[in-house]
Design a protein around this nucleic acid. Structure first.
Lengths: 133, 133
DNA sequence: GCATATTTGCAACCGAGTTGCAGAAACTAT
DNA sequence: ATAGTTTCTGCAACTCGGTTGCAAATATGC
C-alpha cells in the first residue's frame, strides 16, 4: 500500500487510518487527540514524510492552521488537490468540495504557478441550522 | 480620511502609511521592522481595529502567516478583496493580482459563503530569473 | 548476532499572534 | 483650566501550532 518509498510502520498505519476514517481533513491537533498513543512530533514527522511522498497534502484552513488530507491519486509528480475547500467559521471544520474543481485563472507575464488553493469561508449546513438567527 | 469610526492617532497614521507605501501586502513582522517606534501589540491592535472597520483585510499567505492589505473601496459591508493572490515560494512575498478576479464557484446545497480566497503559489518573475536552473 | 540505519518519544524551542495590566494621552463636562 | 472618565499604548507574559536535538528503541543488513 505505501510502497511509494515509505516503510509501513505501525505508527504510520495509524496516521493513514485516522485520515481515512475522518470525513474531512484533520489538523495536527485533531490527529493528536485521535492518536493518543503517538507523540505530536511523530505525527508531525509522519505527515511531513507523507507530504514529501505525495501521499497527503496540507491546506491552510483559513484559521492559521494546516489540515491534512489524503491524496486521492497517489501520483508522484502532480499534486492532485485541485478541488475547492470550505471552512466553516462556526465549527471550524474544513470540508472538501470534491466535486468543485478550482477554476484556473491566467497569470500575469513572468509568474510561474506551482500550486493553487481556493478556500471559501462561511457557514456549513449544520451550523446554519444551529445558529438560525 | 479615517472617519469610518476610527480616531486618527499618530500611530494609526503610521500603520496606514506603511501599508500604502508597500508595493505588496505586509505581514505583522514586516510592519514591525518598518515601524520600529511602535510596539508589536499596538500594530496588532491597530490592524485588528482596521479589519473590523473594513479599512484593511488580512489574507493567509500560504506560509502560515497573515499579510495585511488596504481595502481599495472603503465599503463598510462588502469585503472588496475579490482578487487572486500570488505567493512566491522563494522570496516569500505575497502579490496582489488586482486584475484577476476570483472566479465564482457554485456551492453544494446548504453551504453559505461569506468570503473567498484564491491563492496561487509559485515563483515570481524576479525569483525565476535568479534561480534559473 | 552484531553493527548500522531508521524511527520514536521527550523536552525544549520558535515565531506569529494575543492578552492583562498599568501608565500615558485624549476627551468630557464642569 | 481641572478633575473625572475613556481610549490608546508599551511592556511583559502567554498561547498555540509547528519544529528540532537528542538519546533510547526498533528495525535492517550482513
Amino acid at each position: 500500500m505505501q510502497e511509494h518509498g515509505i516503510r509501513p510502520t505501525a505508527n504510520r498505519m495509524l496516521v493513514i487510518q485516522a485520515l481515512e476514517d475522518a470525513p474531512h481533513p484533520l489538523s495536527l491537533a485533531e490527529l493528536e487527540d485521535r492518536l493518543v498513543t503517538l507523540d505530536k512530533s511523530s505525527i508531525f514527522r509522519t505527515l511531513t514524510l507523507f507530504r514529501e511522498k505525495h501521499l497527503v497534502h496540507a491546506i491552510e484552513n483559513g484559521n492559521n492552521t494546516l489540515v491534512y488530507e489524503l491524496c486521492l491519486s497517489h501520483n508522484h509528480d502532480s499534486d492532485d488537490d485541485t478541488h475547492v475547500h470550505f471552512f466553516c467559521e462556526h465549527c471550524q471544520t474544513t470540508f472538501c468540495l470534491t466535486d468543485t474543481t478550482i477554476p484556473p485563472v491566467g497569470l500575469p507575464e513572468g509568474f510561474q504557478m506551482h500550486t493553487s488553493n481556493y478556500l471559501i469561508k462561511g457557514l456549513c449546513p449544520d451550523c446554519q441550522q444551529k445558529i438560525r438567527r
